[in-house]
Design a protein around this nucleic acid. Structure first.
Lengths: 129, 129
DNA sequence: TAATTGTTGCAACTGAGTTGCAAATAGAAT
DNA sequence: ATTCTATTTGCAACTCAGTTGCAACAATTA
């Protein structure tokens, strides 16, 4: 478990041509283990108390977003959440489901939305969220 | 123009059982005039420099959201945007379109998304955004 | 191994949104 | 019209997610 996880993290970083560092491995594996989008604070909480600094986590996430490994989910909370993009195509992400009672959000990779076609002449939809 | 606008603002406030005050009329008419979701700052900029205080605008928007007149749009900017809900059903809002070149966002009320059915047993989707 | 480049942590900052509270005002009651 | 009461407003001070500058550090390259 540990080993496989570690190896896949390494692979992901390599593909993204990001240096393999401890903070990045930690953040990545936390995201891989998660089944729902997480905020920096939630990621931090999942890691060791001696884990990476808040700023480092943000910078790591930024780097992962830039290389397409991770993407941002904009939930209703004014706090950005992040999730691994492996269950999504380049063009669009799965929808999320937030329970009105408990407030928990989970992913719905089973649901696929049709790609909208642009009603605007001269514009093409490349990415749908 | 002015008159009709003013009257519809009054009507909206009355329906929402909110007191008719100057700040509320101002915020509402700014939203009615807009064709895209706006942040508090954008709304403020549209109003007179002697217009309502930032806090008042936020509180007005909050009241309008609570009564369903306005709803929040969560764009990629960590700043909440607000828009009149008149072109939306209770269940779902229209999608938005953000241009990659200029960054401008506009509404696409022409596009209607199908209401997803919940893949989770015992859960019902009441609202889709 | 040294040089170079990218990465980390800290402290201090930014800026959207919030809160407490006293002054002002809309609308109901007289 | 005047008074009364509950809401609403504006200010100042706050919160807190996210950012920036910079010096120390670690990973690749020569």
């Amino acid at each position: 478990m540990r080993h496989k996880d570690e190896r896949s993290c390494e692979g992901i970083l390599e593909k993204a041509s990001l240096r393999k560092t401890e903070p990045r491995m930690a953040v990545l594996s936390a995201l891989l283990r998660a089944s729902r989008p997480m905020s920096q604070e939630q990621i931090s909480a999942k890691l060791s108390p001696y884990g990476p600094n808040k700023v480092t986590i943000y910078r790591t996430l930024e780097a992962l977003v830039k290389t397409g490994v991770v993407h941002k989910a904009f939930l209703e909370e004014r706090v950005v959440h992040y999730e691994i993009s492996d269950r999504c195509t380049k063009q669009q992400c799965h929808p999320h489901f937030t329970c009105r009672r408990c407030g928990e959000t989970r992913c719905m990779p089973e649901v696929t939305l049709p790609m909208a076609k642009s009603p605007l002449k001269g514009f093409e939809i490349t990415h749908q969220q």
